[in-house]
Design a binder for these strands. Structure first.
Lengths: 203, 203, 203, 203
DNA sequence: CATGAATGAGGTTTCATTCAT
DNA sequence: AATGAATGAAACCTCATTCAT
């Protein structure tokens, strides 16, 4: 479908240049179409960006909702599965994380039509709430770290998203490398051990 | 000084709207000056953004260099101190992390003059290298996690930066809150324990 | 072609207002296009002006080179032909002389990109050198006026260009007239007689 | 007087950059004053330019009027004296000719206030008319060139002004030289001989 | 008198969007 | 359906002019 073809191109350009930095002409060029054609499939630049984010957030929310519905009793498993959701989102669309950052950074929200803006915010908040809910369920194992479950959820997402951006940033500054997967593994390992370790090293 | 006043205003606007999204008129308005006045103190929009980033990166590099010079033998302390540097940067300028992300995202680098661009990249790489060097020093304690020291450094920075963006994003979507400090503490605790725990819970 | 249409309009506006005095909006209006359209065909205002001057200088140099290649033995004929070249340039483009004056006056050179600037100067100097070379060839007839051949060439060009500007200036101040051709003829006659007369009237 | 100091500076800057190209700041810098000070002595940029041109045109008109009043019977002398007037104007103010060209070119007239504009045009036309009147007087000697006396006057002025611009242009492109005076002499010689020669070389 | 920081109108340039082909 | 030339609003930037010191 033409829509898909355009969204793929737009994704790359938006990821590289941000919302205002990307031009319709660039996107059209990347999609090997003319500018006019884009407007046959999308009403505006806003709508293209909106569609992209909707796809990602919808994907994320669907996966999180499914995870929550499983009512997994082990917190550790739930956390691990959460990371799996993030990772699957990343592999489904490596640019997704950047987009979520763009949303978070508020980089482009300004100037979007109010309805588009509020719909994005709604989906975004739903994701936050679902992650928090997954962590908040009663846990089967003993947790040695005390702290608001939501805070643990936040940390989880932050390690993941922070690392994706960081590794990609290093890659673009220093040239191609592919430490992302292995560094993510390492971080996951540290995170899990930290959550469940005895407190002989406690502060 | 007027330069400071302008930079303060620019910081807020750039943080909210990104480089391309921010307009000179907005910045001037925020600084309660006219557009022309900005050009008495800065040659261009680029130069304003550049100055902001330089300030942050210079601050960060100075702190990191001092930390490295201390030759602290305990890795755990070094890591904790590293986080402190990040935190002090955050408290020095809450927008700093966003700026570093803008740099990382490459959002605005395109179109900067080559010398400006290379100066920023140079400072950025210096920060990366210094962090790596701090972690790479021989450690006094037993580290149970194997993995490239640089990868640990990356994780460290990622947790921090990811959390800052994430918490601020939640704050801007849901309204004011101030969980950042406590969530950072929690993440630090998880991270440290994870690094030095026995491996009874290993994957 | 649109480029031609724009150049025609630009020629008139530049001739009337000079480089800085002309505005893109005026040029666009004269060409019955919008400002944006101009930028589809030219990268900048500089490039429009540059293109105009290049066309004129290229035309002039081609004609002069051809004249030189003919190796005409009579100086008088060469001079007459030189004037013909100037006249043909004028009839090819009545604004040309004004442009050459703008170049000479240095009115707009400042602020042009160095490569554009040097290319124009190069072409300009080539024209000067070619005219001088045409005059410097050995002459078949007796010349009663002693003086550097280059100075004669200079006088030739000066009479011509001075008259064009002057007549047009009078025309624009007093309203339409068309004495240019006849005054040029008169000047040519004076000039030729002066060059070859006996010296009974000498100073 | 400060006014003189400013006009001297303005003259150099206007001559170098044209009306629109010159900036008040440049002029102030050249006069070693601040921008504000200029406005103590002149109401506007227009008025500075106006004053400069007025001075020149007034000077020229006064000299021409005096020449006309002498009722010199010899055309040849009248012509020679005319050139002397031009030359004295040039030596009185080497930039004057450029200014008259700027007026002629219409470079800056646009945007001037109507009264300023019409005053300049009036003075300019007076000069033209006076020159023509000087030539039109009955002549004592035999003129072998037939042609409207006004056309001869035009040629005269054109040779002179064309040469001034041309020589200065060459000087600025190729570096310092001082052929202007000698080339002017040569041109005058050619011109006078041409006017009064027998017609053995006629076309 | 002199200053020069501040202003803001106006210029150049970009780019989302439209529309005739 | 597809194109891409044309548009014009809005961005960045300049500079004549003013005014508090």
């Amino acid at each position: 479908m033409r829509r898909q073809q355009i969204l793929e191109a737009a994704k790359r350009i938006f990821a590289r240049c941000g919302f205002k930095g990307a031009t319709i002409e660039e996107i059209a060029g990347e999609a090997e179409l003319s500018t006019g054609t884009l407007y046959l499939y999308f009403k505006s630049k806003d709508e293209i960006y909106f569609s992209l984010n909707m796809k990602i957030l919808t994907f994320l929310n669907r996966k999180l909702k499914a995870l929550k519905a499983r009512n997994e009793p082990s917190l550790r498993t739930r956390i691990r599965e959460c990371l799996h959701v993030f990772l699957s989102m990343y592999h489904y669309d490596p640019f997704a994380v950047r987009f979520l950052f763009h949303i978070q950074t508020g980089d482009y929200l300004k100037g979007l039509s109010p309805e588009v803006r509020s719909e994005l915010i709604e989906l975004s908040q739903t994701a936050i709430r679902t992650i928090a809910a997954i962590i908040t369920m009663p846990a089967q194992e003993e947790i040695t770290i005390k702290g608001h479950p939501a805070a643990i959820a936040d940390s989880l997402w932050s390690v993941f998203s922070g690392l994706v951006i960081w590794e990609e940033s290093k890659a673009s500054l220093k040239g191609r490398n592919d430490y992302l997967d292995s560094t993510l593994d390492l971080a996951a390992e540290i995170f899990f051990r930290g959550l469940t370790s005895g407190d002989r090293n406690s502060t």
